[in-house]
């Protein structure tokens, strides 16, 4: 599957899905689904039902700390504004009022890892940062599937806005 880069938009309906890499984001028109694999990172799935448009960010860290970054998709405080700007460029400024969001990820997969820099708690900190930014932007969060100790495969259906989650060894379920 093709990988999405920071500003890449792939809308080829012949593509089975677009794979969003660690610290990147992508936008797709229906019916092309967006997919990513998550561990402690948090995926933010945006959907505009009227515009039949979806976007997915794979957020690694909560804050860029104000430093200019090469890959805005890596940080919550740069990824969300960047993806929203691209959605608005594509669908017009009024799209913001129609957008909804769903969140997944933020697992702590192993307890064994030593944690001198506090990285094991990154999932919770990512969630807090993302929720604060979305609240400020008045984008409603319709569903959350966060925490635990298992990785997740997230697939956003850009037609319906349904987010499908697959956990190793478990059945797929929907948000």
């Amino acid at each position: 599957m093709p990988n999405a880069s920071d500003r890449e938009i792939r809308t080829d309906p012949g593509t089975e899905w677009i794979s969003v890499a660690i610290g990147r984001w992508a936008i797709a028109s229906a019916p092309t689904p967006l997919r990513t694999l998550l561990g402690s990172c948090v995926g933010v799935a945006f959907h505009d039902r009227e515009g039949r448009l979806g976007a997915l960010t794979h957020v690694v860290l909560p804050s860029s700390r104000g430093i200019e970054v090469d890959h805005p998709g890596k940080y919550a405080d740069t990824a969300i504004p960047a993806v929203l700007a691209e959605i608005e460029r594509r669908a017009g400024p009024r799209v913001r009022s129609r957008l909804t969001a769903k969140l997944a990820g933020g697992a702590r997969m192993f307890q064994v890892a030593t944690d001198p820099s506090g990285t094991l708690d990154i999932g919770r900190r990512n969630q807090e940062a993302i929720e604060a930014i979305l609240s400020e932007l008045r984008i409603p969060v319709l569903a959350r599937d966060l925490g635990g100790n298992a990785g997740r495969r997230l697939t956003l259906d850009t037609v319906s806005g349904i987010v499908a989650i697959k956990i190793p060894g478990g059945a797929e379920y929907c948000l």
Partner: peptide
């Protein structure tokens, strides 16, 4: 753990990231 390879590496590399 029985895991997705991508999720496993993402978690393990978080410190460096």
């Amino acid at each position: 753990r029985h895991e997705f390879a991508g999720s496993l590496l993402e978690f393990a590399l978080m410190g460096q990231a």
